[in-house]
Each structure stands twice: as structure tokens, then as C-alpha cells.
């Protein structure tokens, strides 16, 4: 069974003057339990794919299938129980007036869970926050703690698939590693499927088995991480991306 299938996906944004094609003819398969990274520079359409998948961008064509369910214009509540997303900026993804407790209990209630108290404390333990964080407001939390709350919120409906939209790019370096390790652990524990967007090849190399390289809205190459480690991407853009991430060391290569 496959986790995510995208067939000839096109996503565009209509502005009064022009139409911007953000994603062009993208086909991608993510098997269940697999972790796939989408890399590319900013503006290459990586995040747009995630937003189209979750139904936040209604202007798309092509076919999308998630966990055996074909996606139309509307997403069912059932869909959101299977697919959740962690946003890029933890400073923007938590409601400034809702405490951690409110965020999680509302999520759990919307998905029709019982035993909300017990589930909240389990979730907080899962993401490495103690029960003392339960009643804090976002402004009382650091960036890393906020992202942990956002991850707890995404885990609350017990999804099979987690979409990660550059989950560490807004955090400072020391915290990035913690969050990435947390995500790796959670994936093992809960048997999750990850589709992760990043512009950082090192992050994707750490987290994923497959890498899809995007440029200007198109996927130019899909390769296993091992292949990238051996420094043999085929497409010139992937090579360029890899070289720039390795820095001066590979300049003579």
C-alpha cells in the first residue's frame, strides 16, 4: 500500500494580472512507512505541494491519492485524521492567545477523542515536554518548545502521514538537531510516513530515504539518499545543489 501518490500535479495561483504556475507536472510516490525529502531552493514549489495536499490551496489539477483515498476539492475530517502537517515557523503556527492545553484539547475534541486529559499528557511526554508546559501560552515558550507543541498537535489525531514543511528552518542550530532527532524517534515509534520539505540537504540526508529535487516547480530528479551520499546525482541542478551544500571542500571535484 502506498502512502502518497501524486500524478501530473499542477498547482497555480491566480492573481488579477497573471497566473503563477507554482508546481508543474509533478509525479511522486511515497510508500507507506517511507520518508521522502523534497529539496530545492525557495520558490521552487516544495511547500506548495504540501499545501495542495492538505487542501489549503484549492487551485490544482492532476490526481492526488493519500492512503488509498483519492482527493477531490474538499477534504473530509477522516482525511485530517490520517494526514497532518507541521509548519515551518513555530512563531506563526500557534495561536497567540491559546495555551498549549487549549491547542491540544481543541484538536482532540475536533477529532472526537475521549480521555482528553490523559491523551494531552501522553502527547506532551511524546514530544519531550513535561506536564509543566501544559498550561503555558506560546509567549512563555522558546522556539524549540513551540515546535514541539506544533508536533504534538500534528500527532494528536494519530495520523499515518506527517507532512513536514521545513520544520527546523526557523530554529537555531542547537535546537534543530533536537527536533530532527525527535522526529526520527517519533517516526519509528508511531510507524509514520514522512514527506519532508527542506532546502537543507544535510537535514534531508539525516531524515529520509528518498530525495526528490525540485527546480522551478518541477521535479528534476528522484534518487535514494545513498546515491546522494556517494555524490553521484545525474541532473546538473542536483549536482549544483549538492556542491553548494558541501561548500568549498568540493570545489576542485
Amino acid at each position: 500500500m502506498s502512502g502518497i501518490i501524486l500524478e501530473k500535479l499542477n498547482v497555480w495561483f491566480d492573481t488579477p494580472e497573471t497566473r503563477v504556475d507554482a508546481v508543474k507536472n509533478v509525479s511522486l510516490r511515497v510508500e507507506q512507512g517511507e520518508s521522502v525529502g523534497l529539496v530545492g531552493e525557495s520558490g521552487s514549489g516544495k511547500s506548495t505541494i504540501l499545501r495542495a495536499l492538505t487542501g489549503l490551496v484549492p487551485t490544482w489539477s492532476g490526481a492526488m491519492e493519500v492512503a488509498g483515498e483519492k482527493l477531490g476539492r474538499q477534504r473530509s475530517r477522516h482525511f485530517y485524521k490520517k494526514v497532518q502537517m507541521v509548519f515551518q515557523d513555530p512563531y506563526a503556527s500557534l495561536h497567540p492567545r491559546h495555551s498549549v492545553d487549549q491547542v491540544l484539547s481543541e484538536t482532540l475534541r475536533l477529532h472526537g477523542f475521549n480521555e482528553i486529559d490523559r491523551r494531552i499528557s501522553n502527547l506532551l511526554t511524546d514530544v519531550g515536554l513535561g506536564p509543566s508546559f501544559r498550561f503555558r501560552y506560546p509567549h512563555q515558550l522558546s522556539g524549540g518548545q513551540r515546535q514541539r507543541v506544533a508536533i504534538a498537535r500534528a500527532l494528536a489525531p494519530e495520523p499515518e502521514i506527517l507532512l513536514l514543511d521545513e520544520p527546523t528552518s526557523a530554529l537555531d542550530v542547537s535546537v534543530q538537531a533536537e527536533i530532527l532527532n525527535l522526529l526520527v524517534d517519533l517516526r519509528q515509534e508511531h510507524h509514520l510516513t514522512y514527506l519532508m520539505v527542506s532546502h537543507d540537504l544535510a537535514v534531508v540526508g539525516h531524515m529520509c530515504q528518498q530525495i526528490a529535487v525540485m527546480q522551478l516547480g518541477e521535479i528534476v530528479e528522484i534518487m535514494p539518499v545513498a546515491e546522494m551520499r556517494e555524490l553521484k546525482p545525474k541532473h546538473s541542478y542536483s549536482r549544483h545543489l549538492l556542491e553548494s551544500s558541501l561548500g568549498y571542500k568540493r570545489a576542485d571535484d
Partner: peptide
């Protein structure tokens, strides 16, 4: 994002 996030919970 926090409104998108709650939309993703089916609100």
C-alpha cells in the same frame, strides 16, 4: 499558519 493549522484539524 495557526488558522491553517486548525483548518487541518477539520474545523
Amino acid at each position: 499558519d495557526y488558522i491553517s493549522a486548525v483548518k487541518l484539524q477539520g474545523a
